[in-house]
Design a protein around this nucleic acid. Structure first.
Length: 258
DNA sequence: ATGACGGTGTGGCACCGA
């Protein structure tokens, strides 16, 4: 089976591209981030016609996440239990597969703007709450996949300019420490289980020809629990949608499980 | 140090993203 993640930067604008991409890449489930729409405006009908169920956690203007799945979704959780948050950033659901239940957690991690800012402090609190809750989820669900826009470039090789951007947002020791803490729960970065091209990124700034110059960051990730690690067959970044007219600034990441 | 690009909501722009 295949699972994917894509920050679409407005589902209203990107729905045609999502439908095109799903037609060409009929993944079993897709985590979407930055819907930028309320639940009432979610395009359930178009996605149902494309063959997908959806669990949605929308918000006006900012944030908003959803899980699309070819099979029904159950036990849906919105945001981090026990962590009060006005922003719609997390949705989790269980898919029933031939190999057993699979828990899919889809997150739009906090951006954080700039180290030292209030938003950065919010990011670190959110990351700590996520870590605590993912630990609990892993106790309850051995087959767990954490996908999303992490807004963290885990290592220097995940950034087009690790020297110039040292200690800036997405590159700080604190953010990377939180990413490592997730791995220490028993999660594995599926992309790094395989040889990959150098300078592989999942996001490029809209400005200054960022994509054309491959000035990007790898900040969209798919982490798998130990029970799933052995069944991971591939993990790829699909740059094609970034070449569309009116692209999202992010592009999909796809994992293939046996 | 700033803005560049794009989306939203509103309003003649400001705010946010990464």
């Amino acid at each position: 089976m295949q699972l994917a993640t894509w920050n679409v930067n407005s589902l209203t604008v990107r729905l045609p591209q999502v439908l095109d991409w799903l037609a060409a890449n009929p993944v079993d489930a897709l985590g979407l981030q930055e819907l930028k729409l309320v639940d009432e405006k979610f395009p359930h009908d178009a996605l149902r016609e494309a063959g997908y169920h959806a669990a949605v956690f929308g918000q006006k203007t900012y944030n908003g996440v959803a899980i699309l799945s070819r099979t029904p979704l159950r036990d849906v959780v919105r945001n981090i239990p026990g962590h009060s948050d006005e922003q719609a950033r997390v949705i989790a659901a269980t898919l029933d597969t031939p190999e057993g239940p699979l828990r899919l957690v889809n997150c739009y991690f906090v951006n954080g703007q700039e180290p030292g800012s209030e938003k950065f402090a919010y990011k670190l609190l959110w990351l700590a709450a996520l870590h605590r809750w993912i630990g609990e989820e892993m106790q309850a669900h051995s087959r767990l996949v954490l996908v999303g826009d992490f807004n963290v470039a885990p290592e220097d090789r995940d950034s087009f300019d690790p020297v110039g951007l040292k200690d800036t947002i997405h590159h700080t020791v604190e953010e990377r420490g939180h990413f490592q803490a997730l791995l220490q729960l028993g999660l594995t970065d599926s992309y790094r289980m395989f040889d990959q091209p150098e300078k592989s990124y999942s996001w490029w700034d809209y400005r200054m020809l960022g994509f054309q110059k491959n000035r990007g960051l790898r900040i969209d990730h798919i982490l798998v629990s130990e029970a799933l690690r052995g069944s991971v067959k591939a993990c790829t970044i699909d740059r094609a949608p970034r070449k569309n007219p009116q692209p999202s600034d992010h592009t999909p990441v796809v994992v293939t499980l046996a």
